[in-house]
Design a binder for these strands. Structure first.
Lengths: 213, 213
DNA sequence: GATGTTCTTGACTGTTTGGTCAAAAACGAA
DNA sequence: TTCGTTTTTGACCAAACAGTCAAGAACATC
């Protein structure tokens, strides 16, 4: 009787619901990441998920519902490494851990990163609230942590917000601009140790950049 | 008699052609940057350019023709600052100039940067040739320059390709993720001196990162 | 001002798109 | 097996879409 895509008071989903929802979210991630909300088509997402379009719409009534569901899934992952930045730890060691975590995320979920990038490039119409509240708050908190480290002379003097932006930019670049990196580097980008090599280079640059002289 | 959008053997364009082509390219830049090739509509581009859709199609016969024209315009600008990196100059000073040039580009043509980013995120289907030839060649050449500087001990040891990627990532981030930066920083991102402050922070981080200890 | 050319657009076409619906198929508890 | 529920889909619809066309309006050259 009830539709499966009611947002509140969900009953336990059936196995079929769990499997199909996951297949649709995965397909949506892929297609939305490549073409954005407007460029993606439900036909392509349904085909990727291996089902008919009406069946997809049985689980997500509207295109935007699916898009928002995919986006929300991504946001949680996206934010979590920043929480771990510990004011009590060693500054350089904490930043190393943060960068490593972001590089791993970039390697393991490149589509999530690209989806997020596309949403921002489009002007962030669907996540402006999140950006200007939750994200803003945690960034402000972590910026104060970094600021304190700088004030103590344990980090080179740098504006903490711009440092955070730089780390986001560099780490996400490896996911978002993957096609460009592959085109420029050729085989080298596909070789086994490439991810580690990239992480090594990024750590070398940024950590050297924030270490006081 | 002749159509104005023939690609070869162009005669001198009339004033009307010059004005309308420019209006269309500008509108295309704006709409394609926001929504990508598939997400953009000719109706919206025509409306933005202040003309009817058939009139737009009189200047560019197909949507993809316009997209490629906009993209090509962007690529030339995008590449030019890299040419200026002079092997004979002082390494840190050369990198400073390159970063400043890229930051200015990011500030002055954010839509161009976002358009480019969207194309790469979509898998670079329309510029793969450019990336794997022209871009690849010049990057390889400049990487050798940086490598020589490192070998001479005038730069901290860093993989030159990853250094270039990092500079691209950070500088373009200020254009591509503008919406996020504004949401996170609030008023501060709109204040007069913000661009210079950002450039200062980026220079501080990267130049400190590449300076040998 | 006549005339050939360039520019512009309303009306249109065939296709793709997001979304609906009714009915069939598969499922699950008894 | 029975029967109510969940899941699936072919057929369909209205709107949006890229692109066409013929004819009119503006322009330029004489």
């Amino acid at each position: 009787m009830d539709l499966p895509n009611v947002s509140a008071a969900d009953e336990v989903p059936t196995r079929i619901q769990a499997r199909n929802r996951e297949a649709i979210l995965s397909a949506g991630r892929e297609v939305f990441a490549r073409h954005g909300l407007r460029g993606a088509t439900l036909d392509e997402i349904a085909r990727t998920a291996g089902m008919s379009k009406p069946n997809l719409l049985y689980y997500f009534r509207r295109k935007t519902d699916l898009y928002k569901a995919v986006l929300e899934e991504v946001l949680a992952d996206w934010l979590s490494p920043l929480h771990a930045l510990d004011p009590e730890g060693d500054p350089v060691e904490e930043l190393r851990r943060y960068i490593v975590a972001k590089m791993q995320l970039s390697n393991m979920h490149p589509q999530a990163s690209r989806l997020f990038a596309g949403e921002i490039i489009a002007g962030a119409p669907n996540i402006h609230g999140f950006l200007s509240t939750e994200l803003r708050d945690i960034v402000a908190r972590k910026a104060r942590t970094i600021e304190a480290w700088v004030a103590q002379g344990r980090l080179a003097p740098i504006d903490p917000h711009h440092l955070i932006f730089a780390i986001w930019a560099i780490t996400q670049h490896y996911a978002d601009f993957d096609a460009q990196i592959r085109a420029v580097l050729g085989d080298r980008a596909g070789r086994p140790g490439f991810r580690e090599e990239a992480a090594e280079a990024v750590l070398g640059l940024v950590l050297n950049g924030v270490t006081p002289r």
